[in-house]
Design a protein around this nucleic acid. Sequence first.
DNA 1: TAGTTTGTTGTAAATTTTTGCAACAAGAAA
DNA 2: TTTCTTGTTGCAAAAATTTACAACAAACTA
Lengths: 145, 145
Amino acid sequence: MSHNTAEINRQLRKSGYRVTPQRQLILDAVCQLGDHVTPEAVYDHVHRIAPTLSRATVYRVLHFLTEQQILAMVHIADGRLAYEMAGPEPHHHLVCRTCDSLLELPHSVLLSFRLAMESQYDFEIDVSHLSFFGHCTDCRSSAGA
Amino acid sequence: MSHNTAEINRQLRKSGYRVTPQRQLILDAVCQLGDHVTPEAVYDHVHRIAPTLSRATVYRVLHFLTEQQILAMVHIADGRLAYEMAGPEPHHHLVCRTCDSLLELPHSVLLSFRLAMESQYDFEIDVSHLSFFGHCTDCRSSAGA
DNA sequence: TAGTTTGTTGTAAATTTTTGCAACAAGAAA
DNA sequence: TTTCTTGTTGCAAAAATTTACAACAAACTA
């Protein structure tokens, strides 16, 4: 848990948005809860602190903070969504379809791929976060075959 | 629309599953409706033909056919899910976030990336379909900056 | 073809996520 | 501090997705 609150608040106000207690609570929650935080986990967490804070607000704020690039949207198993802090250094995930484990992928391994798409297709891939699905070491070896 | 019905049916029965009219209708629908078919689009389509076919069945069958690798799950914008036929020839998409255009990516450009993940992380990426989001040539040049 | 097994479906309810709208309140200005 | 504008929130309802369970029916066997 360590985001520059002052800087984020300045950024929001500068863009004409407001800094509300709800937004701060939700941002803190994602920050504290870690790498792939589900909306429900955020709601459970903030609801203890602010019982009137509604689910609708959780969803809206998560979406909003993602648009502001303060959070990043993460695809976890079976098409579910989660969120995490959007650090200055993007990272990505290898998601195991069998055991749902997440493996972090450093941004560097995607740079060449991104450059290739840019030079070959003149297409600029948004790499704030990517998830790749497949099967991890353990599940592959225990799958028989 | 051209999937080998007989072969698929044989595959299902061999695995102990059943070939039902609902499954065939839903598979046909995805096939006809093309790339990135949403559950709702499937439901609208099959519901005209079989009014009693329920939404629950649509969701269940889409999930089931994906597990059987007959369909592929596709992530479309803002975390929504869609489906398409999982052909023997995987292909991928560059999805423009501005104009929604689709650019097809031949499977070959992903092979080296996939091999890298396998050798470096011992993780086997499922590449039946991948979507990358970003911005295409046209939208990048007209976006100013 | 009739009988049996058990995978599937439809219904309805539970969950999850989104949305309309009136009341509220953050931030700017006076 | 008070006032004003309008971005935000909470509520409740709508929409999307999942799940429990009894009835149904696909596929196998005789």
